[in-house]
C-alpha cells in the first residue's frame, strides 16, 4: 500500500473536490495551489498568525498546521465561499463598512475566525471578540476597527428574519 500519496475528497465551499496529495502536503498549500483558492493566505510558519484560517467541519482552524490528507471526507469553507448568491456575508459587510482592513492580507483569516466566532457566540462582548480573534494577527489596523466590524456583523446577524411560519 502506498502511504506517501493519497487520494482525497473534500467538500469545498459546497463543491466536492478530489485530488491526489503527498502525505506531507500542508492543507494551506492544497487549498492555494491544488484548488487554486488563493484567498487563504500564508503569513507565518509557526502557527501564529492565522492568515490561513479556514472552517473545517464547522471549526475555525489554521490550515498551515493541518495536513491536506487530514481533510479527507471533511467539509471546508474558505473566504471565497462566504458570499452567497452575490450577497456579502454580514462579516464581509462589517469589515467593509467599518474599515476593518487595510492591506487585506490578514483579512480572509480574520473573516473566517469572525464567522466562526459569531456562529458560536452571536452576541459577543468586546472582550470576547478580542479574545476570539487573538489567533489572528493584523499589522495594519490596530484591531479597534476589526472589533467594530465584528460587532456590526453580530448586530446584522441578530436582526430578526422575516417571521418563520408556525408549523
Amino acid at each position: 500500500m502506498n502511504m506517501s500519496r493519497h487520494h482525497i475528497s473534500v467538500t469545498v465551499n459546497g463543491n466536492k473536490r478530489e485530488a491526489d496529495v503527498d502525505s506531507r502536503t500542508l492543507l494551506v498549500h492544497f487549498i492555494r495551489e491544488t484548488l487554486g483558492l488563493t484567498g487563504t493566505h500564508i503569513g507565518c510558519d509557526t502557527s501564529n498568525c492565522g492568515a490561513c484560517t479556514v472552517i473545517l467541519d464547522g471549526k475555525a482552524v489554521k490550515s498551515c498546521t493541518i495536513l491536506a490528507v487530514q481533510a479527507e471526507g471533511k467539509e471546508m469553507l474558505t473566504v471565497e465561499g462566504l458570499a452567497k448568491d452575490g450577497k456579502l456575508h454580514p462579516v464581509q459587510e462589517g469589515f467593509w463598512e467599518k474599515h476593518g482592513l487595510q492591506c487585506g492580507f490578514c483579512t480572509p483569516g480574520m473573516l473566517m475566525t469572525s464567522y466562526w466566532l459569531l456562529q458560536k457566540n452571536p452576541n459577543p462582548t468586546e472582550e470576547e471578540i478580542r479574545r476570539g480573534i487573538s489567533g489572528n494577527l493584523c499589522r495594519c489596523t490596530g484591531y479597534v476597527k476589526i472589533v467594530e466590524a465584528v460587532q456590526y456583523a453580530a448586530q446584522k446577524m441578530r436582526q430578526p428574519e422575516a417571521p418563520v411560519p408556525a408549523r
Partner: peptide, 15 residues
C-alpha cells in the same frame, strides 16, 4: 479596493 480583499480576490505576489 475592499470588495476584492473581503472576497479573497486580492492578487498578492504568491497568488
Amino acid at each position: 479596493e475592499d470588495p476584492r480583499f473581503i472576497q479573497g480576490h486580492g492578487n498578492y505576489v504568491d497568488d
